[in-house]
């Protein structure tokens, strides 16, 4: 019982522990550019109380949500098709390989040349960033679907598109959702970076403007806010994921997130 409560609280304890380390570290270093955790946490309400900032942050989230959804709609079918057809896979694989190590947010300056600094450029960049891991994981998931399962489906009279939706999609779902989880964190990162580069609005803009103006409390408070968004979104997604794929073996309760 005790152990169970403890394991529920463990992430919270970890947060508190990390904040405590921060607090101790800043007291020890005692420089102006590294405020204590308490000072930074205190600055959070003043940002969230500011109408302009909140609108900015919500704008960021809206762009992220739209781009994320669009990316899923595009990436999951493509990945599944790649997983089930060698032809499709070998057609797209090299293209994906050369685009993978390119930082999508770095395309921002070029895309801004074409599309301007508006929402569209930022959403396009997030879309690109999310698509790759989702394609990759859907591809892996679909590839691992057992041939026999599809044969039984065909024997029961399912057509090829039906097999794709009724068999491949659910069988690959755990892997697809892992990709989505990675994509979610990636969306957040691309969002912050693209706003940092475009410097017009959004959470990333507030963060880096504060850095340039030397408002250190705001810098660290924004770090806390963006960090909390990442952790919160990830936790929410994990809840959804474990509900959707309850039949699958208990996987990892920590995300395989990256960049």
């Amino acid at each position: 019982m005790m152990a169970r409560v403890l394991s529920r609280l463990a992430p919270l304890l970890a947060c508190l522990g990390l904040l405590a380390i921060w607090q101790a570290g800043s007291l020890m270093l005692n420089t102006e550019s590294f405020p204590t955790a308490i000072e930074a946490v205190r600055a959070v309400p003043s940002i969230l109380g500011d109408r302009e900032s909140v609108i900015n942050i919500l704008d960021s989230l809206r762009r992220m949500a739209i781009a994320f959804a669009a990316a899923l709609l595009f990436a999951i079918p493509l990945g599944l098709m790649m997983g089930r057809s060698r032809l499709v896979a070998s057609f797209f694989n090299p293209l994906l390989m050369i685009t993978y190590p390119v930082p999508k947010a770095a395309l921002m300056p070029i895309i801004m040349l074409w599309l301007g600094v508006g929402d569209l450029a930022k959403m396009l960049v997030i879309f690109l960033g999310v698509s790759l891991p989702v394609i990759y994981h859907s591809f892996q998931g679909a590839k691992a679907v057992e041939e026999k399962m599809l044969w039984s489906g065909a024997a029961m009279g399912l057509s090829a598109p039906q097999r794709m939706i009724r068999i491949v999609l659910p069988a690959a779902l755990p892997e697809i959702l892992t990709g989505c989880r990675t994509g979610l964190v990636l969306a957040l990162i691309t969002m912050v970076t693209s706003e940092m580069i475009a410097r017009q609005s959004g959470a990333g803009n507030i963060l880096f403007n504060a850095l340039d103006m030397g408002q250190y409390d705001t810098v660290y408070a924004m770090i806390i806010i963006i960090g909390a968004m990442g952790i919160g979104l990830d936790a929410a997604f994990e809840k959804l994921r474990s509900r959707l794929v309850r039949w699958s073996e208990p996987g990892f309760d920590i995300p395989l997130s990256f960049a």
Binding site: A10, V185, L256
Partner: peptide, 23 residues
């Protein structure tokens, strides 16, 4: 390690970059 990783892994690390620059 588990709970710490659980918290730090989904954290967007670029957001920490300003702090790293300052430190």
């Amino acid at each position: 390690v588990r709970p710490i990783v659980r918290v730090l892994a989904p954290l967007p690390k670029v957001a920490l970059y300003p702090a790293l620059l300052l430190l």
